[in-house]
Amino acid sequence: MKKVYSRPKSLKRNHFHYCPGCGHSIIHRVMTELIDEMDLQDKAIGIPPPGCSVFAYHYFDVDMAESAHGRGAAVATGIKRAYPEAIVFTYQGDGDLAAIGTAETIHAANRGEKITAIFINNAVYGMTGGQMAPTTLSDQKTTTTPYGRDVKLEGYPIRMSEILALLKGAVYIERTAVNSPTNIRRTKKAIRKAFQSQIDNLGFSLVEILSPCPTNWRMNPLESWQWIDKEMTREFPLGVIKDITGEKNAD
């Protein structure tokens, strides 16, 4: 019988510790498929964040190093500058990339660092138990916005990808989701494009992925998939936000 589906070579043989319905395991799977397909296993260096996915190194069979909360883009900058042959990616949540690490992210993008940020947006702080994130939707209930996010007091959900797209050093930015087979395929295509722009040495690339957190959203997995479509994408529309990889190639 012909084998049509198997574990990617760069995905370790460990059981995922993530909650049922969590998006991390899907994204890990998609990324490790790409690492295999693009032949990056011996070049890739990953920077997982503090948070649920701190244990990403239990699953990715590539070189990895932990980063302090929010500092992924700076750590990746140091690695890439010291060893430009590497393909360096950060794996960061919304609190990490869009709150505590805002400065590091914006300036790495602005310098056009040849790194790729995989930005998991689940609108909450996951591992700490579901507090308000910078991307929490208005009126969304979290443990620190128990009456719903009041934008007059707590600010608005921040669209980090759109902010980053303004910077000349950023060459590829796309927002995707992992709540349907179609969207998962699109996510894979977006990450492929982001990695390719790094391989081509073009500049900073980022894929924002709307990812379900059923546990902290107090939903079952199916409801969480539907919530992404019904609520999250209204604030965070899917699609390519910036792609100047073609222009950069022409330079």
Binding site: S67, V75, K80, Y83, A103, E104, I106
Partner: peptide, 20 residues
């Protein structure tokens, strides 16, 4: 690299040191 902050600078050092 002239970093955006001292925090970023030390984390770049951490990255470069990781790369050996």
């Amino acid at each position: 690299v002239q970093a955006e902050s001292e925090i970023a600078a030390i984390n770049m050092v951490y990255g470069a040191s990781l790369a050996g």
